[in-house]
């Protein structure tokens, strides 16, 4: 019966294909010698973490560094709800305190500081000389949500300097604020100096506002994970190394 035999042949080919695919999948997932590191990074440190990752992977090709970038508050929420992180790089003290309560991380070290600044849409720059000019008319602002370190800092500054932020749009993290300003969707925003420095072509940083007195610090905490201690320490060293500091400085961060 030719029909049946050809069906049998087809079935056999499918089985063979399935076996081959399974074998391939197994060989990549189990057979690979690559180890991985999960690094959680506050979004204002995006560029820095990216530079360190590339350097690090060049030095340790067998380690795969996975960056998880979000607002500091969101990162801590993820960890509290069970996300697995080997190293955590956070802005602000509040969220690091929450992380410490979790108990699975070692004591943090401060690696850099960053100051608040005001950035403007270039189109309004010529009309604005003082902070009061900013809120004249119906100018629109963007600011981080209060839960994010950049937001806490900006609200504190606004209160101290009397800037009305009631109509400002609250963005989940500092990169979203910067994007709103650089796309011209809002007139001005509160970001870190490091962010302003990285976006010099799209936004204009306002000077003499006094915002630079409002400073947040970045700290690094590592997991109490005995088995991957070596890899974790290697990455922590890369972050705290003098060369890393050069990178931070270029990006606009301050010494701790």
């Amino acid at each position: 019966m030719p029909i049946q035999s050809s069906q049998k042949g087809a079935a056999a080919r499918w089985v063979l294909l399935a076996v081959t695919i399974t074998a391939l999948l197994l060989s990549t997932s189990c057979g690979s010698p690559k180890r991985s590191l999960n690094v959680f990074v506050a979004s204002s440190m995006t560029e820095f973490a990216e530079v360190i990752r590339v350097d690090f992977e060049r030095k340790y090709p067998e380690i795969d560094v996975r960056l998880n970038i979000a607002g500091s508050g969101a990162l801590v929420n993820q960890i509290v709800e069970g996300a697995s992180a080997d190293l955590v790089l956070l802005a602000g003290a509040t969220h690091m305190d929450r992380l410490q309560k979790d108990g699975s991380f070692l004591r943090p070290v401060t690696i850099a500081r960053n100051s608040l600044t005001v950035v403007m849409d270039p189109r309004i720059a010529s009309d604005v000389n003082t902070l009061a000019d900013l809120t004249r008319g119906d100018r629109r602002a963007a600011i981080c949500i209060q839960g994010a370190p950049c937001g806490a800092l900006a609200f504190a500054f606004a209160e101290a300097s009397g800037v009305d932020l009631s109509t400002a749009t609250r963005e989940p993290n500092v990169k979203a604020v910067l994007a709103r300003v650089s796309r011209g969707e809002v007139d001005f925003g509160f970001v870190y100096r490091s962010d302003a420095q990285g976006a010099q072509e799209e936004v204009i940083e306002m000077t003499g506002t006094g915002a630079d007195a409002f400073i947040t610090s970045y700290s690094l905490a590592v997991a109490r994970d005995g088995q991957r201690r070596q890899d974790i320490n290697a990455f922590a060293d890369a972050i705290t190394h003098e060369r890393a500091w050069k990178v931070l400085q270029e990006l606009g961060f301050l010494r701790p």
């Binding site: 949500i145 839960g147 009631s166 400002a168 749009t169 809002v186």
Partner: peptide, 20 residues
């Protein structure tokens, strides 16, 4: 955007409150 009182709807408020 996310402006309390004029564009911050319930889902946005939930999102913000999740971090604070």
């Amino acid at each position: 955007g996310n402006v309390p009182g004029s564009t911050q709807t319930m889902p946005l408020a939930v999102f913000v409150a999740m971090e604070t």
